[in-house]
Amino acid sequence: MRTNKKQYDRMVKGASPKSKVAKNCVWAFVVGGSFCVLGQILTEVYAEYMHFSLGDARQLASITLVGLSALLTAAGWYNRLARRAGAGTLVPITGFANAVVSPAIEFSTEGFVTGVASRMFVIAGPVIVYGTLASVAYGVILYVRARFGI
């Protein structure tokens, strides 16, 4: 063949349609923003009407959103929304929940221990691993500063 890898890479870039960035961003903005508004409403309900501390109210709002996402995922609606919303469904905490719930549902055919439980964090695991390790690194800095007064 007369085409080498370098030339082909250019041909592929030319032939492949680009993502519709503007449209995608509008969707992400509206859907992502809406999840945050819902979180805000929930936080205020928990704090003002049910008298939780602000910190607890925020935790409870997150937990409620996680539950909502699980419900939407189980009903098969979350991925329908995500097909348009992209990062609007990925970045909020609901996206994290969807990443945990969807493999659990998917691999239930492989059993509750070897399927559901072992595959549950196959997508969301990295977030917990690197998030926690980042907090450990921050903790070391805080500890050293407190201990040695730097």
């Binding site: 905490i93 659990a104 549950m120």
Partner: peptide
Amino acid sequence: GGVTASLMFALIASALTKSK
């Protein structure tokens, strides 16, 4: 809180529905 809620709801969801 968030992690425990996720895994609990995930287990419930997997028991109640199958992939679509």
